[in-house]
Design a protein around this nucleic acid. Structure first.
Lengths: 232, 232
DNA sequence: TTTTTCGTTTGACATATATCAATGACGAGC
DNA sequence: GCTCGTCATTGATATATGTCAAACGAAAAA
C-alpha cells in the first residue's frame, strides 16, 4: 500500500492509540484496493482472511436466507467490518459488496490477531469498537421488535436530518429499495409509508427529503436516544 | 463476597486467563446477591455501575418503547451482562430482571474498567466475549428480518432440542408468553403457530415438547449455523 | 377443598405487511 | 433525441400478525 493511505488509517479510533511498531506491523501486510460498484468483497459463510476498512465509497453488508436477502447496514468512510469474525476466527455472518466505486484497505486477519495478542492499546481499542457495534445492533433489534415500519421510517428520517446538519431539506444517501431493506420492509411498502408520512409534513421527491412539520413527525416517531442515537 | 464463589467466576472464559492480582482486584470489591423472582436489577437508560454475572437462576433482558416491551434474551448461569455499557460508560440499552430466584455477582464498573485498562489478558477476553455477543445479536436480526414467526419458532425448537441433548422430548425453559416475546410475536400468535407446527410432527403440551418428525420440521425451518448455531 | 389468580387458548376481527401485475419515471447508452 | 433497462409507484389482493374479549385450565392461596 502507499504511504499516503496510512495517516487516514492511523487517525481511526481503532488504530489511533496503538504502539508505532504494532501499527507498522499491521500496515506492512495491508492491501489497498479500489473496486467498482457491486463487487462482492466477501461472502456470508466464508472464513475471514482480512479485516476491512472503508477508505472511500460505500459498502453494504447483506445477509441471506432461503433465497431472500436483507441489507444489514451500509458503511462509509472510516468504518471497519467483520472485526468480530476476524477475532473469533469464525465464518462471516454477512456478505459485503460495494455500492459505489469504493476504496478499501484489507489487513490480513493473521496480522490483526497477532498484533491484537501483543498490543494492549490495540486490544482496548478493539473492545471499544466492538462494544460500539454491539450496541448498534441491539438498537436495531429494538427498532424491529418494538416499532412498525412506518415508525422506523419516521425515525430514520429524523436521524439523518440531524446527521446531515439539521436542515429542513436533505438528501437520502441510499436508494429507496435499499432503504426499504435496511428498514425491514418491501419497496412497495416503503412507497406507501412515504405517502403516509405526508400528513406529518414529510415530502420526498426522488432522494430529496423535506420535513416541514418536525414536531408532528416527532410526535409520531417518538425518537429515543436508546434506539436512535448512533453514538452513546 | 464469600471465597466459595470465586472459583466459579474464575472458571468463566472472561476471567480465566487474567493475572492473579488483577483477578484479586476485581473480586475484592464484588458483591454477591440473591434476589427473589421478578426483581428489577437495572433499568434501561440508567448508567451502569456494575458488571453483572449470573451465578444461579435466570435473568431476562428486556427493552421497552412507547409503553410496550420485548424480551431481548434470557440469561442463565455463567452469563455476564451489560459488559458493553460498562466498557463504554454508556447508559444501559436494556433493563434486567430476575425470572426465578437468582444469585448474581456484581463487579463495580470502575474496577472492571481499571483492570481492563491494565490487564492485557483480561482485555483480550473481553474482546472475545463482546465479539461473541455481537455475533449473537446479528443472528437475531437475521432471524427477525428474513424469517416469519412460524419459521423462528421451528428453529427455536430445533435449537433447544439439540442444546438439551437431542432427545425427541424435552421441556421449554421459559414460559410461553416470554417465548412469544423472545421470538417477536404475541402469545396468541405463538399459540396458533404451535398448532400450525402439528403437521410437522410437533406436539407441545404445557412446557413439554415432542418432535416426532424432525426431518419434516427441518424442511420447514431450514436451519443454518449462520443464524441458529449459538457458538461460532 | 374451594377460591382465586394468572397464563394459555380460542374465535372474531382489525391492521400491517407482502405479493403480483401493471404502469410510470428516470437515466445510461446508442 | 431515442430506446432500453432499472427502479419507483400504484392498485388489487393475499397473507401474516396483532387486538380484543371470552373461555379455559392449572397452580397458588385461602
Amino acid at each position: 500500500m502507499r504511504d499516503s493511505d496510512t495517516p487516514m488509517i492511523r487517525s481511526l479510533p481503532l488504530f489511533h492509540d496503538m504502539a508505532d511498531d504494532s501499527f507498522e506491523e499491521l500496515v506492512r501486510g495491508a492491501y489497498v484496493q479500489s473496486f467498482p460498484p457491486m463487487v462482492e468483497l466477501l461472502v456470508e459463510g466464508d472464513g475471514s482472511d482480512f479485516l476491512y476498512i472503508v477508505v472511500d465509497g460505500t459498502v453494504e453488508l447483506v445477509a441471506g436466507w432461503n433465497d431472500s436477502e436483507t441489507t444489514m447496514t451500509v458503511l462509509r468512510e472510516g468504518s471497519t467490518f467483520i472485526l468480530a469474525a476476524v477475532i473469533r476466527e469464525a465464518p462471516n455472518l454477512m456478505s459485503a459488496r460495494t455500492l459505489e466505486k469504493s476504496k478499501v484497505i484489507m489487513l490480513p486477519a493473521e496480522d490483526v490477531r497477532r498484533v491484537f495478542a501483543k498490543d494492549h492499546a490495540f486490544a482496548r481499542a478493539v473492545v471499544r469498537e466492538l462494544a460500539f457495534c454491539y450496541r448498534g445492533v441491539i438498537k436495531c433489534v429494538k427498532g424491529l421488535k418494538l416499532r412498525t415500519s412506518l415508525e422506523r421510517l419516521a425515525n430514520y428520517l429524523l436521524k439523518w436530518q440531524k446527521k446531515l446538519g439539521g436542515d429542513t431539506r436533505f438528501t437520502l444517501t441510499v436508494e429507496k429499495r435499499r432503504l426499504a431493506s435496511i428498514l425491514g420492509m418491501t419497496p412497495e411498502n416503503l412507497s406507501r409509508a412515504i405517502k403516509a408520512l405526508r400528513p406529518y409534513g414529510v415530502v420526498i421527491t426522488g432522494l430529496n427529503v423535506e420535513i416541514t412539520k418536525p414536531d408532528d413527525l416527532k410526535s409520531l416517531a417518538k425518537p429515543t436516544p436508546l434506539i436512535d442515537d448512533p453514538r452513546s
